[in-house]
Amino acid sequence: LDITFHVDGKNIHVHGASEEVVRIIEELIKNNARAEEIKETLERLLR
Rank of each mutant, 00 (worst) to 15 (best):
D2G: 09
E19T: 12
T41Q: 09
I25P: 00
K10P: 02
V21F: 09
E37G: 03
I25L: 05
I38L: 07
R34N: 11
N31T: 09
H6F: 13
H6M: 12
K10G: 09
N32L: 08
S18V: 04
V22I: 13
R44A: 08
V7I: 12
L45T: 02
I29H: 01
I12W: 13
E36W: 14
I25W: 02
I24A: 09
I29P: 00
L46F: 13
T4K: 04
K10Q: 15
T4S: 11
N32F: 14
N31G: 09
F5S: 03
L28H: 04
E36T: 09
A35V: 13
E43L: 15
E37Q: 12
I29C: 03
K30N: 07
L1M: 13
S18K: 05
F5M: 05
H6E: 13
R47G: 14
V22E: 02
I38A: 02
A17D: 01
K30A: 11
R23D: 04
A17T: 04
T41P: 00
V14Y: 06
K30L: 12
A35L: 14
K10M: 15
G16I: 04
E37N: 07
K39E: 14
E40P: 02
L42Y: 03
E26A: 09
V7K: 02
R47E: 09
R47C: 05
A17R: 01
N31A: 10
R23Y: 11
E26S: 13
A33S: 08
R23E: 06
G16Q: 07
E27N: 13
K39N: 10
D2P: 06
G16D: 08
N32H: 12
G16C: 03
A17W: 03
E40Y: 15
L46V: 05
G9I: 00
N32S: 10
L1I: 14
I25F: 04
E36P: 07
L45M: 07
K39F: 15
H13M: 08
E26Y: 15
H13T: 11
N11E: 15
I38Q: 01
N11Q: 14
V7A: 03
E36D: 13
L1N: 09
A33D: 03
T4Y: 12
L42F: 03
E20T: 07
V21I: 13
V21D: 05
E26F: 15
E40K: 12
A17N: 01
L46T: 05
E19G: 08
R34C: 05
S18Q: 05
H13N: 05
R23S: 08
E36I: 07
V14L: 07
V14W: 08
R23I: 07
I29N: 01
I3N: 02
S18A: 05
R34V: 07
A35S: 10
L28Q: 04
R47W: 12
R44P: 01
V7G: 02
L42E: 00
T4G: 05
N11W: 15
L28E: 01
N11M: 14
K30W: 13
E37R: 09
L1V: 14
R47M: 15
D8T: 02
N32A: 07
D8R: 04
G9M: 02
L45V: 06
D8K: 04
D2M: 12
I24M: 08
G9A: 02
A35D: 04
R44H: 07
N31P: 01
V7Y: 07
E26L: 15
E19S: 11
K39V: 15
I25A: 01
A33G: 06
V7P: 03
E40L: 14
V7L: 06
G9P: 01
A35T: 05
K39Y: 15
I38V: 12
N11H: 13
R44E: 05
V21H: 06
L28Y: 05
H15C: 06
A35G: 09
L45Y: 07
N31L: 13
I25S: 00
E20I: 06
N32W: 12
L42K: 00
I12C: 05
H13A: 05
G9W: 03
D8N: 08
N31I: 07
S18Y: 04
E40V: 12
R34W: 05
E36S: 10
T41N: 06
I29M: 06
I29T: 02
R44D: 04
E43F: 15
N31Y: 10
E20V: 08
R47I: 13
V22N: 02
E40A: 13
L42P: 00
L46K: 04
L28T: 01
G16S: 08
K39S: 12
K10F: 15
H6T: 13
I38D: 02
E43T: 15
R47T: 13
E37K: 10
K30Y: 14
I25Q: 00
E20M: 11
E20Y: 15
R23A: 10
I12T: 01
L1C: 06
L45D: 00
D8S: 05
V7N: 02
E43G: 13
G9S: 02
R23C: 03
E37I: 13
A17M: 04
V7F: 08
K39W: 15
R34F: 06
D8Y: 07
A17K: 01
H15W: 15
